[in-house]
Design a protein around this nucleic acid. Structure first.
Lengths: 195, 195
DNA sequence: GACGCATATGCACCTTTGTGCATAAGGTGT
DNA sequence: ACACCTTATGCACAAAGGTGCATATGCGTC
């Protein structure tokens, strides 16, 4: 039932329609929690049934009427209650790692291409997070309620950076050349960050 | 259908029973892919129906007979085929990040306690990965077929290290004291690794 | 002797997630 | 005129994942 709570968390910011929530899940909170619009609409109905959100219909012309969902006090309490229990660490569950595990039975060229694509993907995300950080929190400071968002972005940067470094290492190791050696202790390599 | 492929990947090492696979999913490959025994047995039946694995019954006394599953050539081909398509990056989906996002509506003491528990958890995992690395790959070298396992462990170390550093940062920022400031560029802090 | 633990397999149910499709209207491009 | 994108909501079905329970037995231990 974590998606429901993620939606409640979004609605603490401001009331939103399902459509807006879907977009939010494509950007800010969606960086670490993917959900498409069907899931969100379904979950919203459930939350409404439980009384955690309240829907207000806004009549529109030309477009279908929209339902603006507001967090109720019950919803806020439910979120607080949920947040009070210890979280459990999520597992990584990445296809690529399964491929790596069975590296002996895998086409190496495809694997290398895959890692290269991933490298770009994670570089992109790292850059995106850094851009958002610089824009939303230019002094590295935030009001209390926004501290979590700042920290989430910083985790994003750290995580993507770690994966980027790993992709680079993997490509080097798998390049065939110095294949089986020259692995250096982690955290020693050149570091081109904002140094 | 990724769990099925993860099982096939495990079986490239050697034939195993469902029970052994469940244990494997608790240790090596399970560091990044959790699955309990029910899931594994279910998936094994499916894989057998598809002809990707073959079951051989081994009669035992005192214990229920066991079914040793062997990867068939069809299974190996299916794995290869699956591995050839580009992987898609997994999202993080961590409860803790949702809590952080809604930080204004959350009990701060519980949140801090949660982060502290996580810090320990990730430190443990980092240490475990480093221990396994040192034991299985003492020279940082591996035969081709094992390179993926080495790299996976090194990703594990990198990932856990990133999260550990973030937990420390989060605790500092949320400690109330210098609450809203003193965030330094990432990748600059003291680094107590094997330096 | 009762209790739990390791070995070994599995069913049934429920929740969560993913995919495809449907509706509805205005705007933009060709 | 027709195709396609954006806004806005939703159903139906299938696949995947998680929880609890059931079975069977030998071994150690309290």
């Amino acid at each position: 039932m974590a998606l429901g709570d993620a939606i409640l968390a979004c609605l603490t910011e401001r009331p939103m329609t399902g459509y807006e929530l879907a977009k939010t899940f494509d950007t800010s909170i969606g960086f670490f929690w993917k959900a498409d619009h069907q899931q969100i609409y379904r979950e919203l109905s459930k939350l409404r049934d439980r009384g955690h959100v309240q829907a207000r219909e806004v009549v529109q012309t030309g477009k279908p009427n929209k339902l603006v969902y507001t967090l109720t006090s019950e919803g806020r309490a439910a979120l607080k209650h949920w947040a009070a229990r210890p979280s459990r660490p999520a597992s990584i569950k990445d296809d690529l790692l399964v491929r790596m595990f069975a590296l002996g039975d895998v086409d190496m060229d495809a694997l290398r291409a895959d890692i290269m694509a991933r490298l770009e993907h994670h570089r992109d995300r790292q850059a995106r997070f850094e851009r958002i950080l610089a824009k939303r929190f230019p002094d590295g400071t935030a009001a209390h309620a926004d501290l979590g968002k700042l920290l989430n972005l910083r985790l994003g940067v750290r995580h993507e950076r770690a994966v980027v470094e790993w992709c680079e290492e993997a490509l080097e190791v798998l390049s065939g050349g110095a294949a089986t050696s020259n692995v250096t202790p982690i955290g020693e390599g050149p570091r081109e960050g904002k140094a």
